[in-house]
Write a protein that binds this DNA or RNA. Structure first.
Lengths: 229, 229, 229, 229
DNA sequence: GATGAATGAGGTTTCATTCAT
DNA sequence: GATGAATGAAACCTCATTCAT
């Protein structure tokens, strides 16, 4: 419940002022119920009237807080992302060597995915988003910026220190890295990716040996980064 | 237009017999218009009436061909996947060394993505699919099986030949590899991933230097596979 | 218009809470227009959009009141039945002898049928209902229970008093009695039964001598009940 | 299969000449499949395309035989009624006393209902028919005339012989009698009436003691007819 | 601030019937 | 005689959003 305290009121707000004024408990409740609904039904089929009812507020009030269904969605998404971002950030600003960081990263991703399944499902939802360039741009800016800059910075530092292969383009490698980690999150949480994982490995990821997955992915990343002929 | 010839009438049909009986030209038209509509609006917002109208047939006839909107969707998806699968297959059954294959793979992915943007967008759509386990299972089986077995086989052979690091789990590595390639496809075609790419690299992938992307991704994969201390 | 006051909010509701909250005038209007539509077109061909329009409310609101077309239908049916049930009940709880009751019953049936033609037509509609056992069971329970227990009780009391033949099975006789009365209702109101009546008697029941019908049916029932060799 | 031979080509035909020309086997098949479909789904929801397919003929040919869905329906109905009519007729033209006839009648009704459930269900269907006076008139004429004249004649003869109460109106009593018998048929075959029977008697009619039902109904009718103070 | 009744466009799906071959 | 592809109107139901109170 106190989690909301960490919720950053960022520049491009997707909620109205009235939402800022209410107490954290109600804020949390609305967003958590929203995440629940969006993650299990997807954006289109989620029903904002039901979210309002479950959250114990009137639909009229809901529209006093959020201008559109989409704004509610983005706010929910943002809320869910914060926790993970926090965790990732604390790992990457540390003084650890890159590979140590990488391992921590993967472990954090795993445990976070298991604990906050619904957040990831919501995030997965927007990855198939169709819309105007502007809309997409705003959302990506909001969701990816911090994470991307964390990764790029970390890789840049490692490159400077000579910890990674010198012919890598840090931005592209950061992109590839993020893809791998994101897809792993999806494998832990989203129906399609989970089933795809099963199709590749023959086992359900929720009954899999996490240590093996972690070590294999770490191998994959480690050598990709440090390769030298 | 003659592309339809390659369309395999696979075991789990998602179209009715009447659809099998019509001539290839009409088949292609329906599916291509379907792909157009689904890829630009997403499954939920796509409108079958419009697809039928654009394809020049009545809605009633559409339902003589496909039992549901979903069946039309899956058939479109399958249709789009076939071309790529064909290409990937021909690469992977060759006698090339793994890294040569990998390069060809990436190049094929790039060019296919650019040529068949809409197919990939459709595929991206189902990656966020919510549904019963059975539905998802059927779709994954249909879409991923062939590709996964191609990758796993190729890695297995390379492992046997000693071309790749011996401590890799071929299935997991195949999964990681597919994730990287799939996400690259998405970066070339889907709004969110394209914007994410921009967010990481600062450039629009459609104006990017493909050779650089290819060589960087190849480096990433190459070293991941062949790493040795 | 004040009729609605008699409408009992029974246990198995086939309307939503929102419907309970609206004022009687609107309730009555919706149900009466519903009965009008259902009785003249039958369930399948009745059109809810038209009912809503005639009742002066939007179709969306209609669905706030009733979850499905069928629920609206059952609620209309229930509404129409209440008036008759009330009347029948007051007759059967009286201290009259059975034959006096029977005569009052038949007279009430006649006049009610003429006044509330549409209610009976709706009831006739469900007599040809096809459906799952559960659906049918629920409807019968709702529609027939009270009436059947009234009849059975009355016959049981008469049997105890020695007013009817002692070898009758009260439940079966109640069933036969109800059939006769119900079919008379149908003869007064429903196209097929009216025409059948004409086919048997040569006259249109609406131009017939009611007293003769009543006295003949009374004779039929009277002797059936009191026969003694 | 030879049953069709008894099918009377009556004045108001509801089939086209082409139907008369085909062989009995096909005629029977079409009508039996039609009865199957109509009795299980009701007129509105029955699908004439499916009937054609199941009967092994094209829909186009179906329309060469019958002008409309309704004509097919009526022809099916007529076909089903013939068997019962035949049986009833042979009972009523006999020299038996009325009560003997009555018992035979009830027994025949019972066994016929059990053997030809679908025919009765179809008949039940039209009892809720809505339509123009003319349509209804034609159907009733076709379905009820023979039966009504049989009953009326039998009662008239009994009256002349002094076997029944002299103050009865034979036409009305015939109507009441038919109602009782028809409703018994329905109780044996149609969902709603069966459930209503259960509601009155507490038992499922298909597990009931037929002899008891028969004897009770016979008592009911017997005394109704022969009563004398 | 808070409510929730009210709106109504819009989309999927069904099926009787026609008609060119 | 026989086929069956083709039609398209029509109906149920959903839900984001508004606004009077």
């Amino acid at each position: 419940m106190q989690h909301y305290k960490n919720f950053k009121m960022i520049e491009k707000k997707h909620y109205k002022e009235a939402f800022e004024r209410i107490d954290d408990e109600r804020k949390n409740k609305i967003l958590e119920i929203g995440i629940e609904e969006f993650s299990s039904n997807g954006f289109e089929k989620a029903n904002i009237n039901i979210i309002a009812k479950k959250a114990g507020i009137s639909i009229g009030l809901m529209y006093k807080y959020f201008a559109t269904k989409e704004d509610l969605f983005i706010t929910c998404l943002r809320y869910g992302m914060d926790i993970l971002e926090e965790a990732l950030n604390s790992i990457l600003v540390s003084d650890d060597k890159l590979l140590v960081k990488a391992e921590k990263l993967i472990r954090t991703i795993c445990s976070h995915s298991k604990k906050h399944t619904n957040y990831i499902k919501m995030y997965n939802e927007i990855c198939a988003e169709k819309g105007s360039y502007d809309r997409i741009h705003i959302i990506v800016e909001e969701i990816e910026s911090k994470r991307s800059s964390i990764y790029i910075t970390a890789l840049g530092q490692a490159l400077a220190k000579g910890d990674v292969r010198e012919d890598m383009d840090t931005r592209l490698f950061a992109f590839f890295l993020d893809n791998l980690l994101t897809d792993l999150q999806f494998a832990y949480t989203c129906d399609y990716y989970r089933e795809k994982f099963r199709n590749y490995t023959g086992i359900d990821i929720n009954e899999a040996d996490d240590e093996k997955i972690i070590s294999q992915l770490l191998k994959f990343i480690e050598s990709a980064f440090t390769f030298s002929k």
